[in-house]
């Protein structure tokens, strides 16, 4: 296409497409008829067709509808978890950078603490502690995904603090909040946004994994993890579509978030200006 001269313009187009697709999934999750996932005993276990794109399950529920509802539910849970994690990362990163060496050491110890137990085990533990359900997963995701982003924020803050214009502002007697709002926040914001977006896919995957293990969302909710865990019982009877399409859709959704996050990072990273 002649109008798409360079990589960046292509990246923009791909990002917009990805956003539209994901927004479409969320929209579908809301507008699809609940009736489609009611029990239809006359139409059980039918393979994918035009009418039922992803087939139907042993209760005659439309798998496409279940998958889309599951995806938008996963995104909601992932959104809440990733938001919480981003806030923790921003808070701890700023503390580490501004409150002196002791605070820095404590934050670094906390990071080590959260990295020393495998994420999935921590998620199971927190989920157990909160008695399962969406709350357990959201808290678990929020508590496990912040370490790398908080390091990025800390490094960025350190750099800005020592930058000349901040020093000048300080000597001009500007108050701390003024410097934070005027100089520091605008620099941190893109990092936070990109960090948040790159965290999102992990959050969704972890939600699905914990739910799959039976420790997450309740079996009555149309979550991808539930769908896949139920499908295991029917694998040997050849109902492959019960696992294949929902998992593939999850893969697509995660990949799209990754693409969006990666492209935004491309635009905010000055060292990438030399690529064609």
């Amino acid at each position: 296409m002649s109008s798409l001269k360079n990589k960046r313009q292509r990246a923009i187009l791909i990002t917009v497409l990805a956003v539209v697709l994901l927004a479409g999934v969320v929209l579908l999750g809301f507008i699809l008829d609940e009736e489609k996932i009611a029990t239809h005993l006359d139409n059980r276990n039918s393979p994918p067709s035009l009418e039922h794109l992803f087939g139907t399950d042993w209760l005659g529920r439309d798998m496409f509808t279940r998958t889309m509802m599951g995806l938008s539910l996963s995104m909601g849970v992932g959104l809440a978890g990733a938001l919480g994690s981003t806030m923790i990362a921003a808070f701890l990163g700023m503390i580490a950078a501004t409150m002196g060496r002791a605070a820095d050491a404590i934050v670094s110890w906390l990071i080590d603490l959260f990295l020393s137990v495998p994420h999935l085990v921590t998620l199971i533990l927190i989920s157990f502690s909160l008695g399962g359900g969406a709350k357990g997963i959201i808290v678990g995701i929020a508590l496990t995904h912040w370490p790398s982003l908080s390091r990025v924020i800390r490094a960025e803050m350190m750099q800005i603090r020592s930058a000349e214009y901040v020093q000048v502002s300080r000597r001009m007697g500007r108050p701390g909040w003024w410097i934070a709002a005027k100089h520091i926040f605008p620099h941190i914001l893109p990092q936070l946004l990109v960090g948040f977006l790159l965290m999102f896919p992990h959050a969704i995957l972890h939600e699905a994994a914990v739910t799959f293990l039976g420790m997450g969302l309740s079996p009555h909710q149309p979550a991808i993890g539930i769908i896949l865990s139920e499908s295991m019982k029917y694998l040997s009877s050849g109902l492959w579509w019960l696992a294949f399409f929902p998992g593939l859709s999850l893969l697509f959704a995660v990949r799209l978030f990754d693409v969006i996050g990666g492209n935004l990072r491309l635009f905010t990273d000055p060292s990438k200006t030399h690529e064609e």
């Binding site: 896919p201 995957l205 699905a208 994994a209 799959f212 896949l228 499908s231 295991m232 694998l235 492959w240 696992a243 294949f244 998992g247 999850l250 893969l251 995660v254 990949r255 990754d258």
Partner: peptide
Amino acid sequence: YTLASTPTFWMGLLVLM
């Protein structure tokens, strides 16, 4: 990149199938 986005348990189900 696709593998990095793949749920491990789903890959397990595919392998099993």
